[in-house]
């Protein structure tokens, strides 16, 4: 099949950027979307052009490196699938596709479809962990975790940090990402001691990074390749509200305050 691609090309963070049209010829339906771009890129390189930059690594849908908008949908049309596992059999001859990078102030464009998502790491650094230094752990079975809680924690922990939720959200909110980590750790007994502090710190960090707020509309849930549910945002809100009014701890030091 043959496709027409309109791809966002931007040389560097300071470049203004524009959409450029490309033709992808003889696309095999068994190719993955990224393999289709690989082929386009090889042609561009041989013609002396710059290949289209896009982040990718594992190509198994779990490292969270890949992701861009295809016709206005993060990771493209296939539900619960990162773009690296989207296959061309979902398209037909003559389709016109618009490829754009994730757009958010907190995700500056590095080049073309490649954005910098270190803001997500900083949200984790603010409190997305259980503080247990190596060596101080009790026996694994000393901590009993009910199976349903463990399963729900796993559902939330499946987040791959790709940023599609931010990209799809009309407010560029990282609530689904932040809520997923708060839910994963907050559901487990191991996560209880820091639960309130974690919610306060991570929520504050997400705002400081320039992500927007959540308006509970569910675009994030619809595009999440790991099908994380909006419920995690409610849990984050609950933990944050409780912590805001009841926590006796002072905010963590080592901050701007």
């Amino acid at each position: 099949m043959n496709l027409t691609l309109h791809v966002w090309r931007q040389n560097s963070a300071s470049d203004k950027g524009r959409m450029v049209r490309y033709e992808a010829r003889d696309v095999n339906p068994d190719m993955s979307f990224l393999e289709m771009l690989d082929v386009v890129n090889e042609e561009l390189i041989l013609k002396g052009d710059n290949p289209i930059a896009f982040d990718h690594d594992c190509r198994e849908g779990v490292c969270g490196s890949c992701g861009f908008m295809i016709n206005g949908v993060a990771h493209g049309p296939s539900h619960g699938t990162a773009v690296c596992q989207l296959h061309m059999r979902h398209y037909k001859d003559g389709d016109v596709l618009f490829l754009e990078p994730w757009r958010a102030r907190a995700f500056p464009v590095v080049k073309d479809l490649y954005v910098d998502r270190k803001a997500l790491d900083r949200i984790i650094a603010a409190g997305g962990y259980i503080s247990v230094s190596t060596g101080s752990a009790p026996d694994g079975n000393a901590i009993l975790v009910p199976k349903d809680k463990s399963d729900r924690a796993m559902d939330a922990a499946a987040c791959i940090g790709c940023g599609a939720c931010v990209a799809a959200c009309p407010n560029a909110s990282a609530a689904l990402f932040t809520g997923a980590k708060i839910s994963h750790l907050g559901l487990l007994p191991q996560g209880q001691p820091e639960r309130r502090q974690r919610a306060l710190s991570m929520v504050a960090q997400a705002a400081a990074e320039g992500f927007g707020h959540c308006t509970n509309i569910g675009e994030c849930e619809a595009v999440c390749p790991k099908e994380i549910k909006l419920e995690v945002i409610a849990r984050m809100n609950r933990d944050f509200l409780k912590a805001s009014w009841t926590s006796r701890q002072k905010p963590l030091a080592g901050s701007d305050g």
């Binding site: 560097s12 963070a13 300071s14 907190a106 500056p108 590095v110 910098d116 270190k118 803001a119 900083r122 650094a125 603010a126 909110s173 306060l200 710190s201 929520v203 504050a204 960090q205 997400a206 705002a207 400081a208 990074e209 320039g210 927007g212 707020h213 959540c214 984050m236 809100n237 944050f240 509200l241 805001s244 009014w245 002072k250 905010p251 963590l252 030091a253 080592g254 901050s255 701007d256 305050g257």
Partner: peptide, 25 residues
């Protein structure tokens, strides 16, 4: 290159209410 590098931010508010309201939630 303008990759922003804000430090992790918590606190900086005089009291509970202002800290609460400062957050989008």
């Amino acid at each position: 290159m303008s990759i922003q590098m804000s430090a992790t931010v918590v606190g900086g508010h005089p009291n509970r209410a202002s800290r609460f309201y400062a957050a989008p939630i």
